[in-house]
């Protein structure tokens, strides 16, 4: 792996963000998730949360750790050491936990209020939009925004469509949308500005599951087109969740 350039910047008084200079992609996400894991293992008591993102990771400290100068110095040293060691292949990169998760999506009109508008904008037929959206593996870069929301990479450029000028006030949980060059699924009902082109009957988040979310960073996601009838059947099943079932996935 080539050297990864980075800056460390403060994110308020109890967190720092490492901003990487490499382009968004699988290689960078692999590096970020590995560094997250190293930091978490090295400083379990001092680090409260680590939030990976496309080109950054944010490390949040406990109050005690924020006030501990020695820890701040050690953390800085450790960040430099682990990023360089990863760049030089002195540390093995772990990616074997990655899984392919199939998410059933019904693209029928009843669940896709914005499909025709998006198709018009992209100069495609509705069925071409559906096949371009579903014939693809997406990379889970990270989770965030709302509980269980997956930031996916790999949307077909032909489906790039700016967000709506006025957001919808109510988007149902499970709605699959496109906003700019991103696609994703709304895990809970919320307002939103993305074009809704389908809906999944599976839940993306349930605090009572052993792991409350369906995917981890570096997993791959594929949307599988289903009929309205199949949607209703899956919806009725108990303990709905995408397969494969996972134990604990953690960056």
């Amino acid at each position: 792996m080539n050297t990864i350039g980075f800056n460390i910047v403060n994110n308020g008084d109890r967190a720092l963000t490492i901003v990487f200079k490499k382009e968004i992609g699988h290689a960078l996400s692999v590096a970020i998730i590995n560094i997250c894991k190293l930091v978490k293992e090295r400083f379990p008591g001092q680090v409260e949360d680590i939030i990976p993102s496309y080109q950054s990771m944010t490390i949040c400290f406990t109050v005690q750790a924020a006030l501990d100068n020695q820890f701040q110095l050690e953390l800085n040293r450790f960040i430099n050491y682990s990023i360089n060691a990863l760049s030089d292949n002195r540390i093995a990169v772990v990616t074997d936990a990655s899984q392919l998760i199939e998410i059933p999506v019904c693209y029928d009109k009843v669940f896709a209020p914005d499909l025709s508008e998006l198709a018009d904008y992209c100069h495609l037929t509705e069925s071409a939009v559906v096949s371009r959206h579903s014939n693809k593996e997406y990379l889970v870069h990270m989770l965030g925004f709302l509980p269980g929301f997956l930031y996916l990479g790999g949307l077909d450029n032909a489906l790039n469509c700016p967000r709506k000028t006025s957001p919808s006030s109510r988007i149902y949980a499970g709605s699959v949308g496109i906003g700019g060059n991103q696609t994703g699924i709304y895990p809970v009902q919320s307002p939103g500005g993305w074009h809704i082109i389908g809906r999944t009957p599976i839940r993306l988040f349930d605090p009572e599951w052993q792991s409350p979310v369906i995917a981890s960073p570096l997993d791959r996601v594929k949307f599988v087109a289903i009929s309205e009838q199949e949607f209703k059947q899956i919806e009725q099943r108990d303990n709905l969740r995408a397969l494969p079932r996972k134990g604990h996935g953690n960056p």
Binding site: N11, G12, A15, V19, I24, S53, Y54, Q55, C60, G144
Partner: peptide, 10 residues
């Protein structure tokens, strides 16, 4: 900007 971790008080 590139999206990143958002902390309380941002």
């Amino acid at each position: 900007i590139s999206s990143s971790g958002l902390t309380q008080g941002s």
